[in-house]
Design a protein around this nucleic acid. Structure first.
Length: 230
DNA sequence: GCGACAG
DNA sequence: ATCTTGTCGC
């Protein structure tokens, strides 16, 4: 774990060459994971929620407790959230086919946002879905669900501003690892049949908050249902 | 130089 | 991220 901004940025530059940007990535993933982290002072809870790619039903979920080990610095979000997220991902019974991150991927000052970092470290296909603008310029996409516009940074298209619901504020989609932008947006639209944000993100957000609030066994919480027989 | 800045 | 009431709308 880096201890300074400079160290962290160096790590990003070091890992960036490991990115797999040769598309297209999973168009019909069977298991899609959503990840999110909730905070309370220096306490945090990281959650991973896996949905069935077809029914969008939650098929597995894991949440873990942790401590903030890196202050939030724009551009270095991964160092704050990744340790706990990797911990939670390790506890899944089966690997997901796609991970939807809360934040950015290639749309990043050094082209290595949370979704890229998580993807490289786990080897899993990953994409980023941000709720607000971070980097880049763009034109407002059309008002209907499905319309989008390029998110550009220094002349490169680094992501897409995608309208997931009619007349509702768009989200910022970018590729992370082993998924191209088209496939990323395709998946995001499949995950937003009812709300602006992907069901994966919503489920992970709820779980992480619950983990923080409830007095559960320090360590974990999840769908490792302890068969309560008898 | 100053302000903005994922979560 | 988090602090926070009411309010407009389906």
């Amino acid at each position: 774990m880096p201890r300074t901004v400079l160290e962290a940025e160096a790590i990003q530059d070091e890992l960036r060459p490991l990115l797999d940007l040769t598309g297209p990535g999973p168009r019909d993933p069977a298991r899609i994971a959503g990840v999110d982290v909730a905070y309370d002072g220096d306490r945090l809870a990281a959650a991973v929620t896996v949905l069935d790619g077809t029914t969008l039903e939650v098929v597995e979920e894991v949440a873990v407790h942790g401590r903030v080990a890196f202050d939030y610095v724009p551009g270095l979000l991964a160092f704050r959230e990744l340790p706990a997220l990797l911990d939670a991902l390790d506890r899944l019974s089966a690997l997901p086919d796609l991970v939807v991150c809360d934040g950015y991927g290639l749309a990043h000052p050094r082209r290595f946002g949370l979704a890229c970092h998580l993807g490289v470290l786990t080897g899993l296909p990953a994409i980023g879905v941000g709720k607000t603008a971070f980097v880049g310029t763009y034109d407002e996409p059309g008002p209907e669900r499905g319309s989008w516009s390029d998110l550009r940074l220094d002349g490169d298209v680094v992501g897409r501003v995608l309208r997931t619901r009619d007349g509702v504020k768009p989200v910022f989609v970018s590729a992370g690892h082993r998924v191209d932008l088209d496939t990323a947006c395709h998946n995001v639209l499949n995950l937003t049949l009812r709300y602006r944000l992907p069901e994966t993100t919503r489920a992970a957000d709820r779980l992480s908050r619950r983990m923080l609030t409830e007095n559960c066994r320090p360590g974990l919480m999840g769908s490792e249902r302890h068969d309560e027989m008898g």
